[in-house]
């Protein structure tokens, strides 16, 4: 048995993301949060020091979480555990790999550590997810070894407009790709700074070559239904759950809306009587736009 097996392959990295499709990945800060997320039907949790809304409010440099907290969360649930490292901070990523987390999010929600380079993700056994706002960003991250993409949106705002903007942009870029000639593809490859074959594969598939989730602003079941109908494979919810009045109820409702997004009657039912969602922020009032980090 031992001789015939291969670990850490790109297929396996992409494969875990395929298993998460149609699901909700929830930001959690404590083991107790993680248990609530699991009980509500989350497909995975993202272990964080603070939810993005609190990172935004606190200011200062946001870094990888304390390994102790991540270990507590890993011990509390049976679903996959993801954790965030700073853009370009490969040493934080090495620590997360050593802890044995299931996925690493090289995330703009934390303060970037490298002004020019993302992590060379192909070197790791653990898969990475990265944020993107358009096709070029997505393909550059995939080229660096990311096995899953999520829209950047604008984290910690509870405002869905930026996630919608990024989903639509990626969709439009792909639609354009589909009618592009070989010459236009070459031009686009130079523009996006990615090899031609990645664009050719995307054109052939008519979608990104890896799973693509929505993130950055999902706060209600209706938000989840909206982004799913726009064509993403699943949903990350950051502050939207544990900044709401009734986290378990909100979490269950978002899970249900993500699964049954085509059925407005079910989404209506799950949206009923949830209490206050997170307050949310107008984008034009923001001092820091996290989405502009790491292009």
């Amino acid at each position: 048995m031992k001789s015939e097996i291969a670990k850490g392959t790109y297929q396996l990295k992409k494969g875990l993301a395929e298993m998460l499709k149609g699901g909700v990945i929830m930001d959690v800060v404590t083991a107790a949060h993680a248990k609530i997320a699991e009980k509500s039907g989350a497909v995975a949790v993202m272990a964080l020091e603070r939810v993005p809304a609190d990172i935004r409010a606190a200011g200062g440099v946001a870094r990888m979480s304390d390994p102790k907290k991540i270990k507590e969360i890993m011990a509390a649930v049976t679903i996959p555990v993801m954790a965030k490292c700073r853009i370009g901070h490969f040493a934080e990523a090495q620590i997360l790999e050593a802890l044995g987390v299931d996925y690493i999010d090289e995330s703009e929600v934390l303060t970037p550590a490298d002004p020019k380079h993302h992590i060379d993700k192909g070197k790791f056994k653990i898969p990475f997810v990265c944020g993107a706002r358009d096709l070029g960003e997505a393909l550059r991250r995939i080229q660096e070894g990311a096995a899953m993409i999520r829209t950047k949106g604008e984290a910690g705002t509870g405002n869905i407009i930026e996630a919608v903007r990024h989903i639509r942009k990626i969709n439009e870029d792909i639609t354009q790709l589909k009618s592009s000639s070989e010459g236009q593809l070459k031009e686009k490859a130079a523009q996006c700074r990615v090899p031609l074959d990645v664009l050719q594969e995307t054109k052939l598939l008519g979608r990104l070559p890896v799973v693509n989730f929505a993130a950055g602003g999902v706060a209600t079941p209706a938000d989840a239904s909206l982004v799913m109908q726009l064509g993403v494979d699943g949903v990350f919810v950051g502050s939207g759950i544990f900044k709401s009045a009734n986290p378990l109820k909100m979490a269950k409702a978002i899970v249900e809306a993500t699964t049954h997004f085509r059925d407005a009657k079910i989404v209506a039912k799950s949206s009923e009587g949830l209490g206050e969602p997170m307050k949310g922020l107008e984008i034009s009032t923001l001092d820091v736009k996290m989405q502009e980090r790491g292009l």
Partner: peptide, 25 residues
């Protein structure tokens, strides 16, 4: 966990083409 996920060629099977290992993730 994920770090121990693996691909394998399963030789011991009773499906068609018995000599051809099953691809599996």
């Amino acid at each position: 966990r994920q770090a121990d996920s693996f691909e394998a060629a399963i030789k011991d099977h009773r499906l068609e083409l018995p000599g051809k290992p099953l691809k599996a993730a």
